[in-house]
């Protein structure tokens, strides 16, 4: 059974010009113990997907569709029930670890808070568990460092702390929203290795949101490519990265290649001025007449007119 199955997720935000649809019919699924990567440029709705799963969108957002977690539709849950799922079942780590840690408490205190929310235990036991967790995420000399404040940690170490907090609950799904974007490249590699080891150890499924395709390839089993609020291509990492079907995926993969940068021309359209037809056609080198008028449907894991049916 799928651990998480999102179908036909639509999110609208009220704006001056009326409702703006930022997610349009997003569907994806993650099996237990598997990992999925959501890739795409900035501003195409990746984080909105994550926040919809956590039910942390602003209150004025209109959400429709289904998000089934363990067969239960999250969108229908009461706030109190949802709170039991957040953290315990689905944990999330964010892009900026520095701002996600409370500056006025020691790191150990903050991990202990998560530990003690999960299981009732004495301060002493909690501290032992904190030190274990810190060791597990590779923070050196945890006994000393757990009494330090977040500002005494480097970015990579802060992200490790966030991971420790998230894993304190042993959640069945971990959502990592650009976990490595704010870190430098060598630290990125370490964090990726750590995540890779931990999701196996904790048997956690992973929803990774990134625009770094190398990290996606390293960490995930399957991939979903997003463009302007839609998923344009889905499939296993190997398949998609080897033979991209959608021109956008191809362009993304080609943007960083051994012979230099080849950026995709233009930028993601604004949600209040989406082009007619295929949303990618103004930037697509292969666009034809049909692309300008008819919106393509998802077929065989790709949303493109040009991909031949079988």
């Amino acid at each position: 059974m799928d651990l998480l199955r999102i179908s036909d997720l639509r999110v609208d935000f009220p704006a001056e010009a009326g409702l703006v649809r930022v997610l349009d019919g997003v569907g994806l699924e993650i099996k237990k113990g598997k990992s999925l990567c959501l890739v795409g440029e900035s501003g195409c709705g990746k984080t909105i997907v994550a926040l919809s799963i956590m039910r942390l969108l602003l209150e004025n957002a209109y959400v429709s569709g289904e998000i089934r977690f363990n067969g239960q539709d999250i969108l229908l849950l009461e706030e109190a029930e949802m709170r039991k799922i957040r953290g315990r079942e689905i944990a999330m780590i964010f892009e900026q670890p520095a701002t996600c840690l409370n500056p006025v408490f020691t790191v150990g205190d903050q991990i202990a808070g998560a530990v003690r929310a999960h299981e009732k235990c004495s301060r002493k036991e909690a501290r032992k568990r904190v030190i274990e967790l810190m060791e597990m995420v590779g923070i050196p000399s945890p006994r000393r460092r757990c009494d330090q404040y977040p500002h005494e940690f480097s970015g990579g170490m802060q992200q490790r702390v966030m991971i420790a907090i998230a894993l304190a609950f042993s959640p069945s799904l971990l959502i990592a929203d650009e976990p490595t974007t704010s870190l430098d490249v060598t630290i990125q590699a370490q964090i990726v290795e750590l995540l890779k080891a931990l999701i196996v150890e904790f048997n956690t499924s992973l929803l990774l949101i990134t625009h770094d395709l190398a990290i996606a390839a390293e960490l995930c089993d399957s991939v979903a490519v997003m463009y302007a609020g839609e998923i344009v291509e889905r499939g296993s990492v190997k398949e998609v990265f080897k033979n991209p079907k959608h021109p956008y995926t191809g362009a993304l993969l080609g943007a960083i290649s051994s012979d230099g940068f080849r950026p995709i021309k233009g930028s993601v359209p604004e949600f209040i001025r989406l082009p007619r037809g295929c949303r990618f056609h103004p930037r697509c080198s292969l666009s034809q007449d049909v692309c300008r008028h008819v919106s393509p449907k998802m077929r065989n894991g790709v949303r493109c007119h040009l991909w031949p049916e079988n």
């Binding site: 709170r83 799922i85 964010f94 701002t99 409370n102 998560a114 966030m162």
Partner: peptide
């Protein structure tokens, strides 16, 4: 509005917990 409040919420913190543990100390 700080990110650590949202992070606390993402980890299942209730309103009381966030008010007294994260907001009040500031």
């Amino acid at each position: 509005e700080k990110a650590f409040v949202e992070a606390a919420r993402a980890l299942g913190g209730g309103n009381f917990y966030i008010m007294f543990r994260h907001v009040l100390p500031e």
